[in-house]
Design a protein around this nucleic acid. Structure first.
Lengths: 186, 186
DNA sequence: TGTCACATGTAACTGGTTACATGATTGC
DNA sequence: GCAATCATGTAACCAGTTACATGTGACA
């Protein structure tokens, strides 16, 4: 996972490991934590695989390494990005974060697939909720299981929220969609 | 984390490691995965610490171990449950799942604290969103960063969803709250 | 001159996974 | 008799964390 994040960051431009940590903390830090103890070994693996190259900065200061994306790394990133989205929150969000680099066709396909997966999941949860409600009606004190049962409702809330978000993405990524405050074709 | 889940499951009654795995998969399976490779060592640790006790079932079949909660385990679970909720989705949900065992006072306090944390977080994200919108207005093609920027909006959606859920919990856990289809004081 | 931010790296540990090994019991 | 499921456990592996070790450059 971290390896793909590094590749994604390097799409914007070359940078050092230290810079990557800062960038990660400030952007995807909300749902992904990177530590130097994982970052530097990952950079080592990527250079060994020749997905990225490294250059010792000589000009300003010593002991600073600038990493660059090699063609193989770029290809690997795009391949990973183009794979179907799974119902894994972190991976979903991470891929979406880099979706500006993915071609529109695959992107839309993946988002549509994901939307229908979410719909399925919402349906499944609603069915489970009904069964549980039935079971609950037959026991003496259903209030005793209020919190236990409530996590089901969390699941539904969550998937509905993701669905809204994905639909917003599908709409908003469409360049023919109305573009407030700006004309799309100047 | 897994250790507390085990303790929580044992609050309902004694069971075997195998049963625990099934129960976990069927209840909190949506946001927590347990494998035998982690479950059995956890049970070993818990028995070593004397938080749970184990009994070889002799009657029906051999080689089946039934675990029971010891007073120390119960106390540890309740202590963990009573700690403040953090903005960590899994831990939040896990604790709520077992909140039926926590006293009403602490529970309400924790939920209120969490709600105000969520409000803070929503405010913070809205501020960040405004800054980013300002920066975006100054670059030539903001559409190129559509997906990158969208994860911020995901964050806001997410926290708002959690806020709604928590408010539902605060309301619904109140026994004086209207109780559809049933009289609360028979 | 001290402290902070920059900058890289390693070692010990943690908490998990996957795959394997083993064997009993149930139901057809 | 054989397949499925019940039932427990271990070993190899993996990805990460924390804490430590080390050194540079800026600036008050």
């Amino acid at each position: 996972m971290l390896e793909y994040i590094i590749l994604g960051l390097l799409m914007e431009g070359n940078m050092s490991g230290y810079d990557m940590k800062k960038t990660i903390d400030l952007s995807i830090g909300m749902f992904y934590k990177a530590s130097f103890g994982s970052l530097y070994p990952a950079l080592k693996r990527l250079t060994d695989k020749e997905w990225v190259s490294v250059a010792e900065e000589e000009g300003s200061s010593k002991n600073k390494k600038i990493y660059s994306l090699l063609p193989e790394g770029r290809q690997q990133l795009l391949h990973w990005l183009g794979e179907p989205l799974t119902l894994n929150r972190n991976e979903f969000l991470l891929k979406v974060f880099f979706y500006d680099y993915l071609d529109e066709g695959t992107r839309n396909q993946r988002l549509e697939e994901y939307r229908s997966k979410l719909n399925q999941e919402i349906g499944r949860l609603q069915a489970v909720e009904q069964i549980v409600a039935g079971e609950l009606a037959e026991i003496p004190d259903p209030q005793k299981h209020f919190f236990r049962v409530s996590v089901l409702s969390y699941g539904k809330h969550f998937f509905k929220m993701e669905k809204e978000y994905v639909e917003q993405l599908i709409q908003g990524a469409d360049p023919n969609h109305e573009n407030p405050g700006q004309t799309s074709k100047p």
